[in-house]
Amino acid sequence: MAKLSNRFWFQLHGWFSLPIWLIFCFVCLTGTIAVFSHELTWLTNPASRAANPDNLPAKPAAELVATVQQAYPTADVSMVMAFEPYLVNAVAFTDHDKPYALAYINQYTGDIQQINEGITFIGFMRSLHGWLLFPWPGSYSVGYYLVSAMALVMLGALVTGLIIYKNFWRSFTQPKVRLHQGKKTILTDLHRLAGVWSIWFLIVMSATGLWYLVQAVMWHADIDIEPHAPLVSAEQLSATTQMPPFSFADAMQKTLQRYPDFRPSYLMLPEHNRGMYTLMGGGDHIFYDEQAYTLSINPWTGDIAHEKTPATMTALQTVMHIADPLHYGTIGGIWTKAIWFLFGLMLSGMSITGFMIWGSRTVKAVRESRKAATLTEVNHGAQ
Rank of each mutant, 00 (worst) to 15 (best):
M81P: 00
Q69N: 13
N52A: 08
A51K: 13
V68D: 02
V68K: 00
T67P: 06
D76M: 07
A66G: 05
A90W: 02
V65C: 06
P46K: 14
N89A: 05
A66M: 09
M81T: 00
A61H: 14
L64T: 10
F83W: 03
A90K: 03
S48I: 05
A50V: 15
M79P: 04
A71G: 08
A50G: 13
A62C: 13
S48A: 13
M81K: 00
Y72Q: 14
A50L: 13
E84R: 10
Q70R: 01
S48N: 01
A75Q: 14
A71E: 13
V88L: 01
S78T: 04
A90F: 00
A90H: 01
M79R: 00
A62F: 15
A58T: 14
V88M: 00
P46E: 10
N52T: 08
D76W: 10
V77I: 09
A66C: 03
E63S: 10
Q70G: 05
A82I: 10
P53Y: 07
V68H: 11
Y72G: 06
R49C: 11
A50Q: 08
A58W: 15
M81I: 00
P46M: 14
D76A: 05
A71N: 08
A58K: 11
A62Q: 05
P85W: 07
Q69P: 07
M81R: 00
L64I: 06
N52P: 15
T67W: 13
D76V: 09
N55H: 08
M81H: 01
A47C: 08
K59P: 15
N89T: 15
L87C: 07
L56A: 11
L64A: 03
Y72C: 08
P60H: 10
Y86P: 14
A82M: 12
Q69T: 09
V91P: 00
V88T: 09
D76T: 14
M79I: 01
V80Q: 01
A66I: 15
L56I: 06
V68P: 04
Y86W: 13
A66E: 13
M79A: 06
A82Y: 11
Y86H: 08
L56E: 09
S48T: 09
P60T: 11
N55L: 13
